[in-house]
Design a protein around this nucleic acid. Structure first.
Lengths: 162, 162
DNA sequence: TTTCAATAGTTGCGTTTACAAGTAAAAACG
DNA sequence: CGTTTTTACTTGTAAACGCAACTATTGAAA
């Protein structure tokens, strides 16, 4: 697709396209492992430390119920293990199995570099730095603006039937 | 969530978070209309011109079968109409109904501005321009790099059982 | 032509998703 | 303490997703 054809050149839409394509690439890459991008994120995240399900959800951006079922699958593939926290019986601690750790260790170094490399090909180090800064600020904006844009209804004088 | 906690500050992941949050906001905004973000995109896109299903898919980034079913729903809500192309019997031309056009016209001006405004709050015009340029270049990189990063399997000396 | 291939769109189907409801443990309250 | 609320996670359910298979039309090949 030639994006120059796109009339909608808004930042959110362009970013949507970029993210979608990266996810497709990563999903294809991770298919032989039986994972999709969320699973890959979980795997790599657990390299740094064991995590509760809640922490994992927060850190990977995966919805909680989705994550719970993903963990069940990854458990079945012997990549991760769940154990109940002994000090807080509500929490479940997720950790890598030996197999999961080997997998993560083997692929992590390549993974992050590869995708950022493709994405930011031809970027000067200054541009790369600027981009990262701007992206972080956008995320800040989203999190600090508790005030949502007005809804389609508030915006609408006469009610539209669903 | 405080993104400063995130260890993974890679551009793809940060963009993933941003896009996800924007989609949630837009979905909430569009719920009273019976639409989600893809439907909103279709609606606004059709303001400029009638389109075939294929064109719409390409222009909105929605997968074809998903789009087909979305169109059926939007047809049921009397927002769009489908008619077969008389010059090419394979194509279906999608257009706005009167109701759909009114809806799109009412909301479009507000919509784009609102979300870009939230996202890029506090950005100087220079920063905004830089961001747009960098984003477009990332999209270019994805589309020109036909060479995918090597797959997890090629990368893996000993095969991992699925 | 007749046949074969390519394009456009829809639908069948198994998987995944997200919201909400459910279970269970801990914390807060009185 | 007993009661209520909050927190952590899982599961039920209906809807949505994407791949692949299918139908139909057009284009190319021989």
């Amino acid at each position: 697709m030639d994006h120059t054809e796109l009339e909608d050149r808004s930042i959110p839409f362009l970013m949507h396209l970029i993210v979608g394509r990266v996810e497709n690439l990563v999903n294809a890459w991770a298919r032989p492992l039986g994972l999709k991008i969320e699973g890959v994120r979980v795997l790599f995240r657990l390299l740094a430390a064991d995590r509760t399900v809640n922490e994992l959800a927060r850190l990977t951006g995966v919805e909680l119920s989705t994550l719970s079922r993903l963990l069940t699958r990854m458990e079945g593939m012997d990549m991760i293990a769940r154990r109940r926290d002994t000090t807080d019986g509500r929490s479940v601690i997720v950790s890598l199995t030996e197999k999961g750790r080997a997998l993560a260790l083997r692929h992590q170094p390549v993974y992050f570099k590869d995708y950022e490399t493709v994405l930011m090909k031809g970027f000067s180090s200054t541009e790369a730095r600027q981009l990262r800064e701007l992206v972080v600020r956008m995320l800040d904006n989203l999190e600090n603006s508790e005030v949502h844009p007005r809804s389609a209804l508030e915006d609408t004088p006469n009610r539209i039937s669903a």
